[in-house]
């Protein structure tokens, strides 16, 4: 009796672990099918340009203030930190290079992705989740409209297209933030700082950041729409879906950032 229960305990733990792994695989498979289905609708008529435009404005235009502010302050902090850090080696001159490299390669896309996940991923999950629990998604089906095509595809496309543009703006603003601190506070000359920036930055730095941005945009929209689409059980369910969407997309952004960096820059 006691020996069998002693034996069972580690097996229970194993079983729980196995179950969690299986659940994870099942969810990953379901999300992949969901994404493939949604993407396949992008090339099959009828199209919904009106919805695409609305989602594009939502992601690209209305996220500008928050992403812009994030970028400016990040650039400012980067300039300060690298100046105080590098002055120990007498390498203050590298401030411009550090700022532009960090912003374009990493902080622009990652911070914009995280901000957009809080803003857009949450909004998508809440909108679609509410439609789910109030039967509006079922109503779409009865009104000869595929809910994936109508609700998910435009949002995925819009986020994937808008994020690179958003990050391009964030790159410029981030460098400007660094420039402001460098010239006003750290005593760099404006033209020298700008020249150092432009001479140093390479096409691959910017492009890799924009590719990351597109991937993050897709991930944020995918998590938002998927969690919303599968939400259950009233206001509480929608709240849970919203939280899940933000947490999942934030973690995926950080993990994918590593994978993409590895793919771009490791030889």
């Amino acid at each position: 009796m006691s020996s069998s229960s002693l034996l069972a305990r580690p097996l229970d733990g194993l079983a729980a672990l196995g179950r969690a792994v299986l659940d994870l695989c099942r969810t990953a498979g379901a999300v992949t099918l969901f994404a493939l289905n949604a993407v396949s609708h992008a090339v099959r008529p009828p199209f919904h340009p009106r919805l695409l435009l609305r989602a594009f404005l939502e992601v690209g235009y209305f996220s500008l203030p928050v992403v812009g502010l994030t970028a400016v302050f990040t650039g400012m902090v980067l300039a300060l930190q690298s100046f105080s850090g590098f002055s120990r080696f007498g390498a203050e001159g590298a401030v411009a290079n550090v700022v532009v490299l960090s912003i374009t390669r990493e902080l622009g896309p990652v911070l914009a992705g995280l901000m957009v996940s809080g803003r857009i991923g949450a909004a998508f999950a809440a909108e679609i989740g509410t439609m789910r629990v109030t039967d509006q998604i079922d109503a779409l089906t009865t009104l000869s409209t595929d809910p994936i095509k109508y609700l998910v595809t435009p949002r995925l496309l819009a986020a994937t297209l808008a994020m690179p543009l958003l990050v391009l703006v964030a790159d410029v603003l981030g460098v400007m933030g660094g420039y402001l601190i460098a010239t006003l506070k750290l005593g760099f000359s404006g033209p020298t700082y700008l020249k150092a920036t432009l001479d140093f930055v390479q096409m691959t730095d910017v492009v890799s950041g924009l590719v990351k941005a597109a991937v993050f945009g897709f991930v944020v929209a995918l998590m938002g729409t998927w969690c919303g689409y599968n939400s259950r059980g009233g206001a509480q369910g929608v709240g849970g879906a919203t939280t899940k969407a933000v947490v999942a997309s934030s973690i995926l952004i950080l993990a994918l950032d590593y994978v993409l960096t590895e793919a771009f820059f490791s030889r």
Binding site: P46, E127, M131, T134, D135, Q136, D138, A139, L140, L143, S144, T145
Partner: peptide, 23 residues
Amino acid sequence: FQNGALFDSLPVWENVCFKLLAQ
């Protein structure tokens, strides 16, 4: 639907003619 299930992102007239527009 029992609870109406109107699309709250669309005005009433678009709700009413949703299927006719979709088709």
